[in-house]
Design a binder for these strands. Structure first.
Length: 796
RNA sequence: GGGCGAGUGGUGAAAUUGGUAUACACGCUAGCCUUAGGAGCUAGUGCCGCAAGGCAUGAGAGUUCGAGUCUCUCCUCGCCCACCA
């Protein structure tokens, strides 16, 4: 029984639009509910079948909430700055602004074809100057608070993108975006001090309802560890014959002295961070990172040629190379000795690249007895491994004169990009006044038009080539000054977009505080696991900062966070246009209908797991919808409805209601299928019951549900009706069949009332014909009855 | 190496959280119908067996009247992190 989905879908989408049923109200007596999905990057490839999986899921939640009487905000927008568009612009010579506008048009048309209940009136676009004006304003807030600073530091440099990358953007030593190799480079970069928020980002995870795996990933990324900072004083030059204090046992001092440098570094002591101060008596050498060793040389250390060569080599190597060589440890002796403060032993200092320059102090005390890496190193270089007793944390700190310390893996956020397609950083450099913010009145600093989009050869953004734009006046002293030509990373705009939805057209502020108080926090945020250590952490930080500055009312932006699984191609690999295995949303929506695709996206598998696409599965959903049409034809005002149908309806209400809350959309849909199958079998259903079913169906297949409702004489929209509630009395089974087990094996089935008394149930079980066969000649030792579940008989 | 998760039919998967394993859907088989379709209807479909029955949730043990579910050992796969001291 085919139905014309194209006609129906167009019709209802228009009706919803005219009625404005999906517009969130800023003033309402209803309780608010803010549902959020990660706004898409409008790529040239068009919508991916993964997008509608998350969007339809939250659409079901949003639609259910509205029917439950909530004032729902379910907004949408565009995260449109970023490299793919810029690279496309470079290749074609077209303006990224134009390309973005085109891509948005396509995405919008495709998303709208699904009948998602977004409030389109609040649409935002991160590349709109009216939007990024506020991104720039917020950056200046960071700057004014002293959290944005410029630093020359080794950064991850993507060779092919010609761009500096944050740690989070380097995956396996490769650029997260293009997959190309990266290397370390020194570059002046704007940084944001996210590490100042490390503790709060960690602790406040306790206050939110995120999936446990999401919390774990955030915790691991922040990587807090507690330990001690201990100072190892540099010993007098090793050429001296002064052998006090004693060197560590087993140390061939004379062998080490031969290679030693002539001069000590210009430091009095080496600070190390350790999580195991209790092992300090077993420390037989110190290891410093090549980065720290380089600093020594820069401050006047006369190192041997061998040392210099090692440092140079290891700093040139990028992460990928270091990993390729894997386990094999390398290192070089410095000729410098230090005193172990706990026992006054004299121990040598080595340089090795297994110690990281960026973590802790860039130096470690090596305890081969208790640390695998140190042991491996000691064995390779023939260093002593001594077994000394452990002491308590406090005692170790006391004996060594150290102090407690906390370290994080989290690094400050590299915020500069030397690229065109991003928000200009709104700062001006004046020789006299230094870095001065562009005054609020002059925001936004609009991205100027350029001839070429490529970064310059020396790695500056193409903005640096626009003389008139770069050269400006200092806002403070009026003297000649230059604009910052770096732009922001694409994480900037997405770090606060959920705030702009609340008041997207406000010209005076990024959002009005009253409205923010009304809507925040977001009640339910769904997105991909790939954003757990990037977007999710950045945006939590950003919101906390705004909270501290008094600009937003809550510290944690997301009350609840869930994640979806990827939609894979039929062959189980990633869907991609280049591989030719991508499903085109336009084609499937036009051929099978938006409702079929919506249902299939949710039915295909458990929501949190990746699932391969199946055209046949989609066809099955279409069959289900056609069956609903058929069954709808049997719904009549005075139909005689069997109690089996009424009972199943109430069971279905219960299950669908619960399943949506737990994102078990697949089982919710299968329950509706069971219901429809039974109605078809029974041949009739009352109009009232069928309409109730349509209300359940509406969040999943809203077009067809409304159409069938109208055919039954419904005047208003289903969206304006209430969510059904189940009646436990009507849902209850009168007769159930339970199994009778004899010694753990099912030997009979009882048809009983669920309320039957225990003794009667047991008696009936023992009298069951088939059960009797297994009791013959045996002694019944025990009979267990679990109400409404099972009778279990133990015989001997 | 560390963390998290998962192994159930030919396939995607269910299982009320310790109570009849394989719901729902796809696919397949047979038959019917037909204006031959990506259509519909009926029946069947975990494995072995003519049957009675037996065996099955990655492997092996354990707890229990009863284990896909809990405990232990091991194997495989996926994701994230990865020389973080």
């Amino acid at each position: 029984m085919p139905y014309n989905h194209q006609e129906i879908e167009k019709k209802w989408q228009k009706r919803w639009d005219q009625a404005g049923v999906f517009h969130a109200q800023d003033k309402s007596k209803k309780p608010k509910y803010y549902c959020l999905i990660e706004f898409p990057y409008p790529s040239g490839a068009g919508l991916h079948m993964g997008h509608p999986r998350s969007y339809t899921a939250m659409d079901v939640v949003a639609r259910k909430r509205r029917m439950e009487g909530f004032n729902v905000l379910y907004p949408i927008g565009w995260d449109a700055f970023g490299l793919p568009t810029e690279n496309y612009a470079i290749k074609t010579g077209r303006k990224p602004q134009d390309v973005t506008a085109e891509n948005i048009t396509t995405f919008k048309r495709q998303l709208q074809s699904f009948g998602l209940s977004f409030d389109w009136s609040r649409e935002v676009n991160t590349t709109d100057p009216e939007y990024y004006k506020w991104t720039q304003w917020m950056f200046l807030e960071f700057f004014k608070a002293g959290l944005a600073y410029k630093a020359k530091m080794p950064i991850n440099w993507c060779v092919s993108c010609k761009i500096g990358l944050a740690n989070e953007e380097v995956v396996d030593g490769k650029c997260e975006r293009c997959g190309g190799p990266t290397e370390k480079r020194e570059k002046e970069q704007w940084m944001i001090a996210i590490t100042k928020y490390a503790d709060r980002l960690l602790e406040d995870l306790e206050t939110v309802d995120y999936l446990e795996k999401i919390k774990t990933q955030q915790k691991n990324w922040i990587g807090r560890s507690e330990g001690a900072m201990i100072s190892f004083v540099i010993a007098s030059p090793s050429t001296s014959t002064n052998l006090l204090p004693e060197p560590v046992e087993g140390l061939n001092l004379s062998a080490l002295i031969v290679n030693s440098a002539k001069q000590s570094p210009d430091v009095e002591a080496i600070e190390v961070f350790t999580t195991r101060p209790d092992t300090i008596f077993g420390a037989t050498f110190l290891v410093i990172s090549p980065e720290l060793a380089k600093q020594w040389i820069e401050t006047g250390w006369n190192a041997s040629e061998e040392v210099k060569k090692y440092i140079e080599q290891s700093l040139k190597r990028d992460k990928k190379e270091r990993e390729a060589e894997d386990k094999e440890k390398t290192g070089v002796l410095t000729g410098v000795f230090v005193i172990n403060p706990a026992n006054e032993e004299k121990i040598p200092v080595w340089i090795a690249d297994y110690v990281l320059g960026e973590y802790g102090t860039g130096a470690v005390m090596a305890v081969p007895q208790h640390d695998e890496r140190d042991r491996e190193f000691a064995e390779k270089f023939g260093l002593p491994i001594v077994d000394r007793p452990l002491v308590s944390f406090d005692e170790a700190i006391e004996k060594s004169g150290g102090k407690k310390s906390v370290q994080y893996k989290l690094r400050d956020w590299v915020f500069s990009r030397q690229r065109y397609w991003g928000e200009p950083i709104p700062l001006v450099n004046c020789k006299k006044c230094g870095w001065i913010p562009v005054p609020d009145k002059q925001l936004p600093v609009v991205l100027p038009e350029v001839e070429k989009y490529e970064p310059t050869e020396n790695g500056e953004s193409p903005l640096a080539a626009i003389y008139d734009w770069v050269n400006t006046k200092c806002p403070k002293c009026g003297g000649p000054a230059k604009r910052e030509t770096d732009t922001m990373p694409n994480w900037a705009g997405s770090s606060w977009y959920f705030l702009r939805y609340i008041d997207s057209k406000n010209k005076k502020a990024f959002a009005d505080m009253k409205k923010l108080k009304h809507w925040m926090p977001i009640d339910w945020y769904n997105g991909g696991m790939e954003h757990t250590t990037l977007h999710l952490l950045y945006s939590r930080f950003w919101n906390k900062f705004l909270f501290d500055r008094g600009h937003v009312p809550v510290s944690e932006p997301y009350a609840k966070r869930t994640s979806h699984g990827l939609v894979l191609a039929e062959d189980g690999t990633k869907m991609s246009k280049s591989k030719g295995n991508a499903v085109n949303p336009d084609e499937v929506v036009s051929e099978y209908g938006a409702d079929s695709v919506r249902l299939y996206e949710l039915f295909m598998g458990p929501f949190g797991e990746p699932v391969p696409w199946s055209m046949n599965g989609l066809v099955g959903m279409r069959r289900f919808l056609e069956k609903i049409v058929e069954v709808g034809g049997k719904a009549a005002e005075n139909a005689v409805e069997k109690t089996a149908v009424t009972r199943l309806l109430h069971q279905t209400i219960k299950k669908v209601t619960n399943d949506i809350e737990h994102m078990h959309f697949n089982t919710a849909i299968s329950q509706m299928m069971i219901f429809v199958n039974v109605v078809k079998e029974q041949g009739s259903i009352s109009k009232e019951s069928f309409v109730t079913f349509l209300r359940l169906l509406c969040p999943f297949a809203p077009h067809l549900a409304n159409e069938l409702y109208e055919q039954l004489g419904g005047k208003e929209l289903l969206e304006q009706q209430s969510w059904p509630t189940h009646n436990p009395e009507l849902a209850k089974e009168e007769i159930i069949s339970i199994a009778v087990q004899v010694n753990g094996k099912v030997r009979g089935i009882l048809e009983i009332s669920p309320d039957i008394e225990e003794e009667i149930a047991k008696q009936k079980a023992l009298e069951n014909e088939n059960v009797k066969k297994y009791l013959e000649g045996k002694t019944v030792e025990k009979v267990v009855y679990v109400k409404g579940r099972i009778v279990s008989i133990v015989v001997k």
